[in-house]
């Protein structure tokens, strides 16, 4: 019975990946459109932080690693440099893509 429940929770988590990707993208957009204000970057970092923690526990190791990388970059910023923005943008985009990929895999 507990295995069933575990499967259920895992499924629930997987089905939340799509909306997690959407939320992340939304956070990124507001950070970008606010010129990386402290608040929006903190929100984004919080999202990525939680994602890094939970994804690892549910066995999504690539997602967790990708989230950790974004988190550490965000902790270094926000820097007023185009290359930083470009790098973070790419990494966030990659994380979002990873999430969407995992969300569509049928287990």
């Amino acid at each position: 019975m507990s295995q069933n429940k575990l499967d259920e929770i895992r499924k629930k988590y997987q089905s939340s990946l799509q909306s997690k990707a959407d939320e992340l993208e939304q956070c990124w957009r507001s950070a970008e459109s606010s010129f990386f204000s402290e608040n929006t970057v903190a929100t984004l970092r919080g999202r990525v932080h939680n994602l890094g923690g939970s994804a690892g526990m549910y066995g999504y190791d690539t997602v967790a690693a990708s989230a950790k990388r974004v988190e550490s970059q965000l902790s270094g910023g926000p820097e007023d440099s185009a290359s930083w923005r470009k790098q973070v943008k790419e990494d966030v985009q990659q994380l979002v893509t990873l999430l969407r990929d995992e969300a569509t895999i049928v287990s």
């Binding site: 429940k5 939680n50 939970s54």
Partner: peptide, 16 residues
């Protein structure tokens, strides 16, 4: 724990 995803998993395992 503020993250529901982690809390649910830990809750299940510990209650079990």
């Amino acid at each position: 724990e503020d993250d529901d995803d982690i809390a649910q998993l830990v809750e299940l395992v510990l209650e079990d």
